Computed example of a mutant assay.
Amino acid sequence: MTRKLTVGVVGGGIGAMQIEAFRALPDLYSLEVICDIDASRVESLAAKHAIPNVLTDFDALIARDLDIISICTPSGLHFEQAKKALLAGRNVIVEKPFASSLAEADELAKVEQESGKRLCPIFQYRFADGLAQLQRLRERGLVGKAYAATVETHWRRLPAYYDNPWRGRWAKELGGCLVTHAIHNHDMLMRVLGPVRSIYARTATRVNPIETEDCAAAVLEMADGSFATLSVTLGSQEEISRLRFCFDGLTVESNHSPYNPGKAPWRFIAADPERQKVVDVAIAEVDPAPELYAGQFSRLHKALTEGGELPVSIADARPSLELITAAYHSARTGEAVRLPIGQDHPLYAGWLPPTARGRA
């Protein structure tokens, strides 16, 4: 019989989307507690989703006998709350970015190992049928040498979006469009093409009067020798996300859904009709599976109850923080930055600008 895992969610903003996913997996999870400093919001979520317990204090939450604590609070709180939950003997799910520096990511890896519990960063865009189809083609040897790729994260954020007191502020959100918006698409790029060798990036604040960047562009050299370009803006009148890959014998393009570009259908354009037939057959072999949060959580349940690899581990998610670190350093120095980034790098301990460090 499948063992249900008990869950407490802290943070009722993005946490509401996680709650929907947990509720969609009733045989796997029992959502026991919702915690938020906003008492009215937490009461409303509890009533809507029949969650039996409400709290407004994080320490009270991690004191509960729960299998998992899911952290959906403002970004600047993620590291400390994840660390406290691990030390309290709880498995942890944590929204992106799961830490505010590579140093914190490496510390969490040590705490995870010492605690005997497991930490799963959120990268829900990875779990979608279109991306799975591309991975199947790669397994079949139908994806040749990579040449170039483009990633567009063109979203729209109006001034009202920043009425929330932690958005658009370095110390609370830990960055702008590179951290809170494009991070998922850039993670998908690295899932497909592998590690980044170097990056040249530029950032600007052009759309709204905020502390952090809302436009960015970058050129990446990948470790396999291919190139990728990144384009990010929060000033697009039509919201899209698009990933396009040019391989030897195959061009691949994602759908344009801004918040789930990994879902099918994707376009797979082969070099000739015979190769196209083989590609189409391989794609058809991929059965639809739970996507986004439900996709990640269904795989997480298996890892926690049966053992094996997490759907996303700290090691899996760390390259996203390394790319952010390198992009900000390149934008500030005007120079290309080589990866990997070691402990001697000026931003290893944190990518926030000096004027933002230590601010509440």
Rank of each mutant, 00 (worst) to 15 (best):
E274N: 14
A317Q: 04
P74G: 09
R206L: 15
L352W: 00
P121L: 07
D38E: 13
R169G: 00
I269H: 13
G342R: 11
A317E: 02
L137H: 05
Y125R: 07
V33L: 11
S70G: 09
E95D: 15
E309N: 14
A294L: 07
C215G: 00
F247R: 00
P311T: 01
E253P: 08
L28I: 00
D129E: 14
P121V: 10
I269L: 14
D27H: 11
I240G: 00
L102C: 04
A317D: 02
I240P: 04
W266I: 09
E152V: 09
I71K: 08
N91A: 09
C215M: 10
T6G: 11
P159I: 00
L178I: 13
R118E: 06
G144H: 13
D214Q: 12
L178R: 14
E213G: 09
G141F: 03
M1P: 11
P340G: 09
L87H: 05
V337P: 06
K145G: 05
P74T: 04
L28V: 07
A349R: 12
S115I: 04
R191Y: 00
K172V: 03
S241P: 01
A160T: 12
A47G: 11
Q18P: 05
H329I: 00
F247H: 10
L310K: 11
P121W: 07
Y29V: 00
G350Q: 02
V219Y: 09
L193Q: 03
A289E: 14
I324W: 04
R90Y: 09
R197L: 14
C72F: 05
H78V: 03
A149I: 02
G168F: 07
Y125E: 06
A149N: 06
V252Q: 01
L25Y: 06
P26I: 11
E274V: 13
Y293F: 15
Y348P: 06
A270D: 03
E238M: 14
